[in-house]
Amino acid sequence: MKHSTFFWFVLPSAILMLLFIALPIVSVVTQSVYAAHEQVVVTVENCGPFGCTQTTAIDQEATQALREAEPLGKYVGTDIYTDRNHLAFAEVGGAWREAEGLPDFGAALMNLPFYRAMAFTLTYTFIVTPLTIIAGFAIALVVNTVAQWLKGPTIFLSLLPMVVTPIVGGLALFWMVDARGILGGALQWLADDPTLSVKADTTLMWIMLMVYGVWHSAPFAFVVFYAGLQTVNQDTIEAAIIDGASRWERIRYVVIPHLVPLTTFVALIQLMDNFRVFEPLVSFQAQAHAQSLSYFIFSDLGGETRLLSSAAATSVLTIIGVAILLSPVLVRTYRDFTPRT
């Protein structure tokens, strides 16, 4: 391809990526290094139906002048990144100096919101991603072998979890695991413990969230693997059969090697999605037991006082986290596609 042809070919998508991906990131990074101005607070009398009280309010005129002088706010560098609600450098350092042994340090670390969220998010990512791939692959193998007339309905049913809006799917499961719901009741019966409650126990809540995660994203892996299965070379399969390979051996030595590049693709997408886990935390009302960086962004922006800089800093940390997670897979892909010299 000529250079000029290539240039005109990619120009539209380059412009769109610049506008909708690069610029928002620049804006978020900018926001995250600025904080609100020092508030000019005055004491005022506040009267209403319950009488009058002395209270404080923001001096709007003084604040207006400050805002006009520096519309972005006060430059604070990386202060927000390192404060207690994010990376908490000072608190981590203090805990390290004062901790009596590693378990004590771990407990102190888990008391800080960022590290506690990371503990859940990483556990979730590294358990849900492989299970999703395995479940998706298994479903694809099964669907591939069912009779032709049954394939349509089977594929439709297998895709349902992905079709259902995450919030709705999460809510449906939330009510089913309620102590008086069908799954919650069944668990109580199985464990022979009438006080067992999934929603009250952190471990059970984590398991529930991960089960939901696999249930929701297995169809995606299934669709990709099912498409891949259609391209398996039938001659190779027949040759393997003639050689006396069992069904398991055919899968192990013919099908799986053929699907490895697809696995990389599914893993990439799933690592990214799972690191940003959010909807199940909302629909399971799980904030007492599990948090994620995305959930922090949501609560920073949804509170009575919006914390824009805090949300921006958490967004940047999420991007960095995703980049770190994906780097091994990306390096591997790069190596595979670079001709060896």
Binding site: A35, A36, H37, E38, Q39, V41, K74, D79, I80, D83, R84, N85, E91, N111, P113, T305, L307, S309, S310
Partner: peptide, 21 residues
Amino acid sequence: QALADVEAAYTAAAKEQGYLQ
């Protein structure tokens, strides 16, 4: 400990919003 955590979380947010220095 819970109350100390609340105070620390509030203080960090109030610094960001410019109420505390």
